[in-house]
Design a binder for these strands. Structure first.
Lengths: 346, 346
DNA sequence: TTGAAAGCGCTAACAT
DNA sequence: ATGTTAGCGCTTTCAA
């Protein structure tokens, strides 16, 4: 028995069942099984089970031009925003028999390009991209390339490509209004990188909200990345330049954590001396010290909707691009409070 | 120009360069490029670039019996333990030109089996499995199957398969000793499912530690899953049965959170009335309320080492199985303190 | 209802 | 140094 083929091919199954390989193929294929005689069908299936046959996906893909792989590139799986979104996509894809190829690009365009290239070589049936920049040559190239594409979480300025993103505009608006209602009048902003649609849109709506409420133009700082360290550095500059600030809207939850750190470094306690609002409602945000007031983005749904949209695009490549806006919801928790009397300006 | 081939094949490149396809293949392949005339090499490369040629990985895989895919099955990417481990594996694999196929099995053996089957059909070059049970028929089958395999985070009782796991034994020990040093004498245990090596080993070493310190045999409850809700339910039972408990060792950080919840439900404040130690030191564990005292497991390294071991196995399938134990380190934070005088037994 | 034959795109003997 | 040829394992026309 030693030295036999590594794993049985369709030919082996066919031989065992006493039929031609094309018949075996038809029998084992859901769609074509009806074409084969019930008795034969049974024999083939038994032979397949008996031999422990497993279709060779590479051969199938080569012939059918369908790999049943979907590629997904995100900035970083270790960033708590992404796991739920990945999981959402995974669940949808698995139900349809597709597998997920995952890469983290660290927001490095060259790295993202290499990863996408590897996925394209892997003949993925579609691409889920969460690392898009507002101006993104890679996305532009891909748009013409015949591989269906959906942008997740971030989109591009130019449009023309399907995307599933949070309603950044409304989110920031809710954050500002919440702080205003608490009595804050000196509200700062620590946003994410402006090369992302999230960073840009959250800033734009922050500015508009502040303006329409007639608030003074406070500090607005762009952090270099959506993480705690960048948020802390940016907030440090903000608080130095605008010491009268009593509240900060952050570009996301990690940035918010950094803002809280920066405040603490200056002796400002959150929420007593400094209120902070995050964005996303990442895992455990409600159990932090203090529990984070934030804009809840349906992260899992971002993944689900992206995958669904991509599958629709795979079925019908001529389907026009579409942008799905998922609305967020303000979760009021412990990181926001009325400003302390002593710190209120005027 | 419309109606041309979807994407150029090697044949197209060869034609454009005026050579035979086999020459083009040699030219474009790192390993065989030395065999071709420098001038020809240049022409082929230019043609490839000019046409935007991209190798068809399915065809290559079919021929070479190497897909450059690695499959990874974890319980749930949304569980904060896994993202760093996934990231570690990703980084190693990418450096070697391999892509990662990821699935979440939810600890459902049938689901895991389907996912592994899909990956095997996808001709993955190796498998990283983080969902193993102590007795796992799937792992047993795979061991004979010719696809290299490394278990991550959890291993099987039988051995005979490579694994990279935390040092559960030493971890629990440190937790108990820490609580003992603080003055606790009534220490309970809320562990993970005993069908996992983690659940079992952490319990075993807890019991041994308690015994060797001469402590009374306190409550030990097995939670149904490694999550907050199960931890809360289990801890509820523990505290009802052993109300004199002043400290609890939890099977992981999420379970620890559940223990804290259960305490709070009974009016017990952590750490004043109840000390809790977690396991893993998941993301943000130190920023929770209270900051979690826990056993730090090098999650990223678990991923790195697993991937490295798997690659070694891919290169040399005859390499004997090996278990790598990664040691944890106690991180003392805010969820543990000396027992309150009023609650100390006796 | 089944078999024959072609071919997906590539690599690797083998031959020249 | 390059061309010829076979074949990886599968699906799918086309014929019978």
């Amino acid at each position: 028995m030693t030295g036999s083929r590594p794993s049985p091919r369709l030919k082996d199954v066919a031989d065992a069942a006493g039929v031609h390989v094309s018949t075996a193929s038809r029998a084992l294929n859901e769609r074509t099984a009806v074409l084969v005689n019930p008795g034969t069908l049974e024999r083939v299936r038994e032979a397949a089970t008996g031999l422990g046959y497993r279709v060779n996906g590479m051969a199938r893909a080569l012939k059918m031009r369908r790999s049943l792989f979907i590629g997904m590139v995100i900035p970083d799986i270790a960033n708590p925003f992404f796991p739920p979104a990945v999981r959402g996509a995974e669940d949808v894809l698995e139900r349809r028999g597709l597998s997920l190829l995952l890469s983290s690009s660290d927001n490095d365009p060259a790295k993202a390009r290499r990863q996408v290239t590897a996925m394209l070589e892997g003949q993925v049936d579609g691409l889920l991209l969460a690392m898009a920049r507002r101006e993104d040559p890679l996305v532009d190239e891909l748009r013409g390339g015949g591989t269906p594409l959906v942008l997740m979480n971030r989109t591009v300025d130019g449009g023309g490509v399907s995307a599933v993103v949070p309603d950044d505009f409304n989110g920031s608006l809710q954050a500002v209004e919440h702080l205003y209602a608490l009595g804050h009048r000196q509200i700062g902003f620590v946003g994410g990188p402006l090369f992302t649609s999230n960073g840009m849109r959250r800033l734009a709506s922050f500015e508009q909200a502040v303006r329409s409420l007639g608030l003074p133009d406070g500090g607005k700082i762009e952090a270099t990345a959506f993480n705690e360290a960048s948020g802390c550095a940016a907030a440090g500059r903000l608080l130095a330049a605008y010491p009268e600030t009593t509240a900060v809207v952050a570009g996301n939850d990690l940035l918010a954590l950094g803002v809280i750190d920066a405040g603490a470094q200056r002796g400002l306690s959150c929420p007593r001396d400094l209120s902070v609002v995050g964005f996303n409602d990442m895992l455990l945000a409600g159990r932090l010290q203090p529990p984070l007031t934030t804009i809840r983005v349906p992260e899992y749904d971002v993944g689900v909707r992206s995958a669904e949209l991509l599958l629709a695009l795979v079925e019908d490549p001529s389907r026009p691009p579409e942008t799905v806006l998922l609305s967020g919801e303000l979760k009021v928790r412990g990181s926001t409070a009325a400003p302390a009397p002593g710190r209120r300006p005027g």
